[in-house]
Write a protein that binds this DNA or RNA. Structure first.
Length: 528
RNA sequence: GGCCCCAUCGUCUAGCGGCCUAGGACAUUGGAUUUUCAGUCCAGUAACACGGGUUCAAAUCCCGUUGGGGUCACCA
């Protein structure tokens, strides 16, 4: 059996679509599962400029997720070039072959005329078939037209009496009546190929064995198979996988601005947009609109783990059995098969994605979490490029103390109170009011406890807690009488780490300074 | 509208004729862990779109209906 060769052929659009990434992943998985080759080919046929800039984010997405390619940009390969804009000769040669064999023809009808034909068909409620006027031309007329440079396109001559079919790995047997298929244009007058044609020529030249792509291409397959046959090429195997739908819908996930606005209101999707709105401004990354969950880059910037995205994408439209959910990249490679791909389209599930993220985050050691989180802290300006050993230690302790609360790497940014100076700590005003201003004795109790803290000889969480409890009992107080005001006073927030972990993390000096500052603030606001 | 695809809990899915009084995960609800948040543990709610067949037997096979989606370019 020949080596399995799969490919993904993105257009350089300036971003990587999460749905496209899933398609690429399935191609990659199938190649890796079979010990085959995964090829990246760039579909830049009609936008030659700025290809490099527009391609960069796409390659970046592949690298981030660890989907390595065996042939393609940056590395080349035996079947290059891997940019379609550089493959004109192949297309011209293939077209010439079809022309010579009488399987394709020059069509001199101007686009407007074709459009008229189309409208006429629509008005008469019959399926549109292009009118083959140019086929009626005599040889001398054709020759004359060509010589005088009359504009034309080249169409494949479809045998309208035939049927064409594929046996798709996922869809099964699918058949089309060629009598309903207009002769497709395969090359424009300027000798640039059209998608369906270029794809076939390249897939054949690159010896692609399995064309795994989204279901929306199923209809294209009829024409493509016809082209394979006309060219005398072996037809590859096809697997039309379901596309990724917007959360909670069956609609194809789209990047169009209008849709993005709609997604922001989708209750399931909203969660991801909220993360962006909360985190990206801190990182100077713009908003949830310019960098949104339809793009792979969103997940990287929001602090997802590649493992979580791979896991989530793998389970979107594919499953191993009735129970396995958490799967490593290696495990999926080992077990991925096309026959277990689901047929129905699958909506992206933000909640599930987040739960995979939690799972993979749990697997990380403190050191790994530190490496993962540090860049986020630096980009948010909470830690400088150069920092002291004490700062490093503080971050490590913060990561340990935050435990499960750290789900995304960017979650660390929510604990900024442990990284800012006592003077620049900001208070959640609502919480401050509720916990320090409103309760009659809040300030008084806080002041009492401050004295206890000042005298503590062991400033560790465990010691502080037991000391706190005996003090509380001795003074006939309940947890609720002080814990909230203490939290707001020392962290500025209504919720956060375990209270005594927080105090330990801050240390005696900061804890006392912050309590003093809060008391001062409370008193001045009370007297107003 | 033509052509094509699809149809199990809210979501992602298991199920490929009897093991199904339909399983798992996420979400959700209630309870426990009596400082917040998070987590953990226990328990619960929740689905075979509908109608005909075939069969001793149908979520599973066939047909139809309905619903959803994709695609109909000298875009990719």
């Amino acid at each position: 059996m020949s080596t399995v060769r799969t490919r993904f052929a993105p257009s350089p659009t300036g971003y990587m679509h999460i749905g496209g990434m899933r398609t690429a992943l399935f191609n990659w998985l199938w190649a890796r599962h079979n010990g085959g080759k995964f090829i990246l080919r760039i579909d830049d046929t009609d936008r030659a400029r700025n290809v490099e800039d527009a391609l960069e984010p796409i390659l970046e997405a592949f690298k981030w997720l660890g989907l390595d390619w065996d042939e393609g940009p940056e590395i080349g390969g035996d079947y290059g070039p891997y940019f379609q804009s550089e493959r004109s000769d192949f297309y011209i040669e293939a077209v010439q072959k079809l022309l010579d064999a009488g399987l394709a023809y020059h069509d001199f009808d101007p686009p407007e005329l074709v459009q008229q034909d189309r409208e006429a068909a629509e008005n008469e409620k019959r399926p549109f078939l292009n009118v083959r006027r140019s086929l009626e031309l005599s040889d001398s007329e054709k020759k004359q037209y060509l010589e005088e440079g009359r504009p034309s396109v080249i169409r494949l001559l479809v045998d309208r009496s035939q049927k064409v079919s594929v046996d798709d790995h996922i869809r099964g047997h699918v058949e089309w009546d060629c009598g309903l298929i207009p002769d497709p244009v395969i090359m424009r007058g300027d000798q640039t190929p059209l998608y369906n044609f270029a794809t076939v020529v390249d897939d054949a030249a690159m010896k692609i064995t399995h064309v795994i792509r989204a279901e929306e291409h199923l209809t294209n397959t009829a024409v493509q198979v016809l082209i394979y046959q006309a060219l005398g090429y072996d037809v590859p195997e096809f697997a039309h996988i379901p596309f990724v739908a917007a959360p909670g819908t069956k609609e194809k996930l789209s990047k169009r601005d209008k849709k993005i606005e709609k997604y922001k209101k989708n209750p399931q999707f909203k969660k991801l947009f909220d993360i962006a709105d909360n985190v990206f401004p801190k990182l100077n990354l713009g908003s949830s609109v310019t960098l949104n969950p339809v793009m792979v880059a969103y997940y990287r910037e929001a602090g997802f783990l590649p493992e979580a995205i791979i896991n989530g994408l793998s389970r979107l439209g594919w499953s191993l059995d009735d129970k396995t959910e958490n799967m490593s990249r290696e495990f999926v490679i080992e077990n991925f098969t096309l026959d277990r791909v689901v047929k129905a389209s699958a909506g992206l599930d933000p909640d599930k994605l987040l739960s995979y993220q939690e799972h993979w985050m749990e697997q990380l050691s403190t050191d790994e979490k530190y490496d993962f989180c540090l860049p986020f802290l630096q980009r948010a300006g909470l830690v400088g490029e150069d920092f002291s050993a004490e700062q490093r230690d503080q971050i490590v302790r913060l990561i340990e103390a935050s435990g499960d609360r750290l789900k995304l790497a960017s979650d660390i940014l929510a604990f900024d109170e442990f990284l800012v100076s006592d003077d620049s700590l900001t208070y959640d005003e609502k919480a401050f009011k509720k916990r320090l201003l409103k309760p009659e004795r809040a300030v008084e109790i806080l002041r009492d406890y401050r004295a206890v803290l000042a005298d503590s000889n062991d400033f560790t969480a465990a010691a502080l807690e037991s000391e706190f409890k005996s003090w509380m009992e001795a003074n006939n107080l309940g947890f609720g009488d002080i814990i909230h005001s203490l939290r707001v006073a020392t962290t500025g927030k209504a919720s956060g780490l375990g209270m005594f972990e927080a105090l330990e993390l801050l240390g005696r000096e900061s804890s006392l300074a912050r309590i003093d500052r809060a008391i001062e603030k409370a008193e001045s606001e009370k007297s107003e």
